[in-house]
């Protein structure tokens, strides 16, 4: 259980770990899952601040919040509330989309942007599916697309307490609220990525079946000076699947900032 902060009237639950340069980590649609080891690995060199998005974990989802724009402004307010300076803005998958929406608006509190397998932009034509339709395939098929080794990501929901199951159900509904249509992207975001004026690093799981490395190249092409590196034996969630390799790459990027 993290501590609670009220930002713009929204009660947010925040997980924190470690010391060092602040790193605001925005989680994927699957949730924060703070018991996973990646949070502490990142905390070895950073003061990690990882909010549960509104509707996930213990964070409230007020009726008036319903778009990724809202989340971007909310987290800009959170960064101000926490007094973050020279921080790293990091996001995975859906969280990467939010991070990019923040970065095209205001980077004054951030020294660098780190995007891991982000969703959020439209690259191909009307008949091209840039982002796999995670809601049109069985859970097992989703796991095969999202993980290099699906067994690593399995969660046996029949053994979890009801409070955690309710958290999973709430998070799934919230992801639909924010990302159902257009599906997991903002058709206009790509045109504004040129506004990102801080060093940007893209990390991609080499076996990501949700968004391909080609999609990652499109991100790289739109953000001035962006660099991209890949992690072997990782799918859509490299921070979960390869926490050591992920933390090492984050460290290598932030050391240069």
């Amino acid at each position: 259980m993290g501590r609670h902060v009220v930002v713009a009237g929204v009660n947010l639950e925040i997980e924190e770990a470690g010391q060092g340069r602040p790193l605001l980590f925005l989680h994927p649609g699957e949730g924060l899952q703070p018991t996973h080891p990646w949070l502490n690995r990142l905390g070895q060199h950073h003061r990690v601040i990882a909010p549960h998005h509104p509707g996930w974990g213990g964070s409230a989802l007020p009726d008036w919040i319903g778009t990724v724009d809202d989340l971007a402004y909310l987290y800009l307010d959170l960064a101000a509330e926490l007094g973050l300076e020279e921080a790293v803005l990091a996001g995975s998958s859906f969280g990467g989309w939010i991070a990019a929406e923040i970065a095209v608006r205001n980077t004054s509190r951030f020294a660098g942007l780190l995007l891991a397998d982000p969703l959020g932009i439209k690259v191909g034509g009307v008949l091209d599916r840039d982002i796999a339709d995670m809601h049109a395939i069985p859970r097992a098929a989703f796991m095969r697309l999202a993980w290099a080794d699906p067994a690593k990501g399995e969660i046996d929901t029949t053994k979890l307490p009801d409070t955690e199951l309710a958290g999973i159900a709430r998070g799934r509904e919230a992801l639909a609220v924010f990302g159902w249509k257009p599906y997991m992207h903002n058709p206009r975001l790509k045109r504004w990525l040129h506004r990102i004026d801080i060093p940007t690093h893209l990390i991609w799981g080499e076996q990501d079946g949700i968004v391909s490395m080609t999609y990652g190249e499109a991100w790289k092409a739109e953000i001035p000076g962006a660099r991209m590196e890949t992690i072997p034996a990782a799918g859509h969630f490299p921070h979960w699947e390869q926490p050591d390799a992920f933390a090492a790459r984050v460290r290598a990027f932030t050391e240069l900032l």
């Binding site: 809601h135 049109a136 395939i137 069985p138 929901t157 029949t158 979890l160 009801d162 199951l165 309710a166 999973i168 159900a169 709430r170 799934r172 509904e173 992801l175 639909a176 609220v177």
Partner: peptide
């Protein structure tokens, strides 16, 4: 199966029962 329970369609309570 994926079309039988889109997220948000059923209540949180009903989803907890299905996950359990």
């Amino acid at each position: 199966e994926p079309f039988t329970n889109p997220p948000g369609y059923n209540s949180i309570g009903a989803n907890v029962a299905m996950l359990r």
